[in-house]
Amino acid sequence: MSARQRAIIEFMLDNLVWLLLIVVLAAFSIGIPSYFQIGIFTNIIEDSTYVGVMAIGLAIVIIAGNMDLSVESVAGLTAMVTGILFCNGGIGLGYTMAPVEWLAIPVSLLLAIAVGGIIGFSNGLLVVKLRMNAFIVTLASYIWVRGLVLALSGGRSAQGMVPELRIIGIPIDPILLPPSALIAIVSFIGFSFLMRRTPFGRHITMIGGNPIATFRAGIKTDRLILVSFILAGAVAGIAGWLLAIRTSGATANLGVGMLFKAFAAVVIGGVSLKGGIGQLPGVYAGVLLLSAIQTAINLMGLPAHYTQLILGALVLAAMLIDTLKLQIRQRLA
């Protein structure tokens, strides 16, 4: 096999999920009436926003060879914090930054990042310093953080986001996408660069592949793992912030079920649960694919259970493809 042929096959294997996305979009556009229109495609991108952002942090932790189950609850918490502070209905306090009202955007965003980052830091600290299992630590966080959401809200909802924040969720005329979708796209581009082109990203991938060898190579593995957890928490914080803006409020169960979607997107996107393998653009394609399928189900009026059936089948297919890819790569080597 020539080097050119090998490169083409490698490229195909790396971008299989994008090909799958194109095939699925084409099939739905042909088969489902009213699927093929700009409004539906912008909906798909918009709906991928918060799960997509959440999946970035999750993917980084998984590539580093760990696990973070707390991202969903962290997003729920930051959504609730944003809702309580910046909504004017229900339990919302309706804070504004008058006279400089736009300051509500950076202030609320930084607050969400800080809240998420603190939880990520506590997760990372327990994993790195006390050598506790990441699955158990983050499972505990998944539970207690959701409990904190409930305690903060008393089970009640905040509603009616202040206009200066709500604007982030309203589509901009020429591009028909809201700034929230652009934030998600920019986040994917930025973190893809971080993971691919910087020593931090390469070291994270190396740790996931072989932590002992990485440590022996003089890389501070513990510090990097801690940073990966902080990043996952902070990014989940952004996801929650976007979620609150998208729904113009927050309920105590906001975000429930998104962990599963984020996990599915990460796996479908080609990130190995064993760590050390995976690229963020693939994860974004995975999120878009899930959103495309969800939209198709909504338009076809299929019972919701089909979403779970299809999602389960997709994750299984992704795992099979992953195994197949490894075998093909071994043959190519």
């Binding site: 909906n43 709906d47 918060y50 979620l243 998208r246 729904t247 409020g249 309920t251 169960n253 906001l254 975000g255 429930v256 079920g257 969800q294 939209t295 909504n298 919701a304 979403t307 779970q308």
Partner: peptide
């Protein structure tokens, strides 16, 4: 699904 608000929004 799961009475989750963003699902209704979608």
């Amino acid at each position: 699904m799961q009475w989750e608000a963003s699902n209704a929004g979608t």
